[in-house]
Design a protein around this nucleic acid. Structure first.
Length: 357
DNA sequence: AAAACTACCAACCGCGCGTGT
DNA sequence: GACACGCGCGGTTGGTAGTTT
């Protein structure tokens, strides 16, 4: 295919940032003649630019209907939702966000949302939890589920001191063991492709909490308000296990579950920044609609001797290190987390509960 | 105050698709 | 069917402003 290049690099065409004079020329020409043939436009407009550059400048910057300024909550939410459906189809996403360009959305995604999702432990490509960060279930499975094996786990993790709350591990272990005995063959997930990806719910201290299980198959629907007839599975099929909230029993001795919810579990990590840990701060959005937030993929907590809550972590497989020292993003992560709610199918939630009880 | 670092975003680049000849 | 062309898309780069050390 011998296509002639749009911009001959040796014909003296200008590159780089546009001057106001060039902008005025382009605007004036388009106002007068409209934009039809980008290839001939620069010559007719008296611009030493290639047509491609002119088109880009117009569509991404000079167009009169461009909306400038910070993305609103609603826009950000829409972007995340649409991205989970469309992937990196920036133009398709942009077409649903009036006044925003694909380039702008792409930049915003890469500089804000993507980092935030990573920090929350969500894979920004698949929109699924990054279980490579915390594969507790496999650890438990490998080491059995009796409390005697908890020490082995600690040994495995190189923990000299009893940092892991034994009660917590017992709970996790028992939950996992319990779920192992379930036969899920009769369940019909809303989408067979997303089996084994979503936490089932268990009744714990009068609260619905996601059950720790590697083969949970409750259905999560992701409701997009801008697309009223669409629901989307938040999770993609490449997730094998899913570790959910745990209740730190010793913590609950001092704090009611209600407090736990209200205070977002107090998940403030004291872990070093160079250890990538998703920091999902909010509590369950556990109301009667069975909503639950992105915090379902919270980290397993353990307690240090000074009673500060910390996390068990496993090395990240992510190629992107998260040396987060951003103040704004971290502050926003909490809000985003809460905004990332999606709904659990009530049927599957109740089904999951029935199985556990 | 200056250097180093980080975040942001406009612009560039290469490729693929659709269409016309 | 082969080719040329125009256009749009997604990934990447590089300049700059802001922040931290």
């Amino acid at each position: 295919m011998g296509r002639t290049p749009c911009c001959d690099k040796n014909n003296g065409l200008k590159k780089g940032p546009w001057t106001t004079e060039e902008d005025q020329k382009l605007i004036h020409y388009i106002h007068k003649h409209g934009y039809g043939n980008w290839r001939t436009l620069p010559k007719n407009a008296g611009l030493q630019r290639c047509g491609k550059s002119c088109r880009l400048r117009w569509t991404n910057y000079l167009r009169p209907d461009i909306k400038r300024g910070r993305f609103s909550f609603e826009e950000e939410e829409t972007i995340i939702q649409l991205h989970s459906i469309l992937g990196n189809k920036w133009s398709a996403i942009a077409s649903r966000l009036p006044g925003r360009t694909d380039n702008e959305i792409k930049n915003y995604w890469n500089t804000h949302i993507r980092k935030r999702l990573l920090r929350m432990g969500i894979d920004p490509v698949t929109h699924s939890p990054r279980l490579d960060l915390l594969d507790l279930s496999s650890i438990l499975y490998a080491y059995g589920n009796s409390s005697s094996h908890i020490n082995n786990i600690q040994t495995l993790l190189g923990i000299q001191q009893p940092l892991v709350n034994p009660e917590l591990l017992k709970l996790a272990s028992s939950l996992f063991n319990s779920s192992q005995q379930q036969d899920y063959s009769n369940n019909q997930p809303c989408n067979p492709q997303i089996q084994s990806q979503v936490p089932r719910f268990v009744q714990f201290q009068d609260q619905l909490v996601p059950q720790v299980h590697a083969n949970a198959n409750a259905c999560a629907t992701f409701t997009n308000p801008s697309l009223p007839n669409q629901s989307h599975n938040m999770f993609e099929p490449n997730v094998e296990a899913y570790t959910s909230n745990f209740t730190d029993l010793s913590y609950n001795e001092q704090h009611s579950v209600h407090d736990w919810h209200e205070n977002g579990f107090g998940l403030i990590s004291t872990i070093a920044e160079d250890e990538y840990i998703p920091q999902l701060l909010s509590s369950y959005n556990n109301n009667n609609n069975n909503n639950y937030g992105c915090d379902n993929i919270q980290n397993l907590m353990y307690q240090t001797s000074d009673n500060s809550n910390q996390f068990l972590s496993t090395p990240s497989s992510s190629p992107t290190p998260l040396n987060s020292n951003s103040t704004e993003d971290e502050r926003e992560s909490y809000d985003s987390c809460n905004r990332l709610n999606f709904q659990m199918s009530a049927d599957h939630v109740s089904d999951a509960n029935d199985q556990f009880m």
